[in-house]
């Protein structure tokens, strides 16, 4: 865990990351299989230490609701939470264009070594959108 030398705060994360880690938005409490969805996608691998599941409900070609589960570190949890905030209410095409950088910027930045391994939520969302479209 790298230390923030400016503040002597042991957290290498920004306050926004910390907030999303401690108070994750839109995550599915309890059994996610009971969360009815129009599309779902899962990425990552527990062997690598990170896995994200994203489920979406679609209305009028927009993401009406989004729910998720994440196995992983603080950065993985916060970035999936951030993705859910970014995606909610957007059109499918618009939401499908959310990038890792956009998630990272939303969170006020992430430690370099975390960026590549833990920001995967947008890929799970992409799979969820494809999953939804494949059922049409």
């Amino acid at each position: 865990m790298p230390t923030n030398s400016k503040t002597a705060d042991p957290w290498a994360y920004t306050d926004i990351v910390k907030d999303h880690f401690l108070n994750p938005r839109n995550f599915i409490m309890g059994d996610e299989t009971k969360w009815q969805a129009d599309g779902e996608g899962i990425v990552g691998n527990p062997v690598c230490g990170d896995q994200m599941l994203v489920k979406i409900r679609v209305k009028d070609n927009k993401i009406d609701d989004i729910g998720w589960k994440t196995y992983g570190c603080a950065s993985a949890i916060a970035s999936t939470s951030a993705l859910s905030e970014l995606a909610k209410g957007r059109t499918l095409d618009d939401a499908d264009h959310i990038t890792a950088k956009e998630i990272c910027d939303f969170l006020g930045g992430l430690p370099e070594h975390k960026f590549h391994c833990s920001v995967l939520g947008h890929q799970a969302l992409h799979k969820a959108i494809q999953n939804y479209k494949s059922k049409l």
């Binding site: 865990m1 957290w11 880690f21 401690l22 230490g49 992983g72 570190c73 949890i77 975390k114 391994c117």
Partner: peptide
């Protein structure tokens, strides 16, 4: 429960532990 998450939640409660997770 991934270890770094456990470690950071405990740190906020003023409890210091260590983890063997890759993230840490």
């Amino acid at each position: 429960a991934e270890g770094e998450s456990t470690q950071l939640y405990l740190d906020l409660e003023n409890i210091a532990v260590s983890t063997g997770s890759a993230c840490a």
